[in-house]
């Protein structure tokens, strides 16, 4: 790689570290949670130290996730607000999916898909954490709460993991170079101008 390669800063180091702490804690809680989701995935419990260990540590993984996510939320929630253009973008999202971007509004630092994912994961996190607390200490919780939590926790988890699958795909294979933005923190100017034109203009104007 050339030293003088033109770069646009995409995510600063605090954003990157926060993102990856969220990612790691989410991954751990997902994999340990999946062990308890289906008997066919119970082998994951062996990978993470056995059933009782998984049961003991999964909630703490959730606590870590909650803390990191809260920090990330505070940093990004203003930039994630859905605006007029974003709503139009979402209506035409099917075009984005097939690389026919005619009529698609230009994206800012985050496109409407990324913003939607942020809010879906935020809602998922709230449900997962609140129901998770109930499931953590079943012996102290009222029965009605437990019955609700036992249903909502996996529902929210499926939604969140579904979002994660799409997110990982978009961040790696579907959008080459995006990954470097989150690892090394920079992207090529051409990439920025193409994927996030509004943001690129803002950045270069400065």
């Amino acid at each position: 790689m050339r030293l003088d390669e033109p770069k646009v800063d995409r995510f600063n180091v605090v954003e990157r570290v926060t993102h990856w702490l969220v990612a790691l804690s989410f991954l751990y809680t997902t994999l340990t949670g999946l062990a308890l989701w289906s008997p066919r995935l119970y082998w994951l419990a062996a990978v993470f130290g056995g059933g009782p260990t998984v049961r003991g540590w999964h909630p703490w993984g959730g606590v870590a996730f909650a803390a990191f996510f809260a920090f990330m939320f505070r940093a990004w929630n203003r930039q994630m607000r859905l605006e007029q253009d974003d709503r139009r973008w979402l209506r035409l999202a099917h075009r984005y999916a097939v690389h026919n971007e005619e009529g698609l509004p230009e994206a800012g630092r985050f496109n409407a898909g990324q913003k939607s994912l942020f809010w879906i994961q935020a809602a998922g996190a709230v449900v997962l954490i609140s129901t998770g607390v109930v499931l953590w200490w079943p012996e102290t919780m009222p029965r009605a709460l437990r019955l609700t939590a036992i249903l909502l926790h996996p529902v929210a988890a499926v939604v969140a993991i579904g979002g994660l699958i799409v997110h990982i795909y978009m961040g790696t294979a579907a959008v080459p170079e995006a990954f470097r933005g989150m690892i090394q923190g920079w992207v090529r100017p051409g990439w920025a101008a193409s994927h996030h034109p509004k943001w690129y203009r803002e950045v270069t104007r400065r």
């Binding site: 999916a97 579904g162 051409g190 193409s194």
Partner: peptide, 22 residues
């Protein structure tokens, strides 16, 4: 469906490419 869907999306449509216009 998420795993297979994203995989076959890649197979059918591939990555998003761009022309460097900067």
């Amino acid at each position: 469906g998420g795993i297979l869907g994203t995989f076959f999306h890649y197979v059918r449509y591939g990555p998003r490419r761009y022309k460097d216009e900067t």
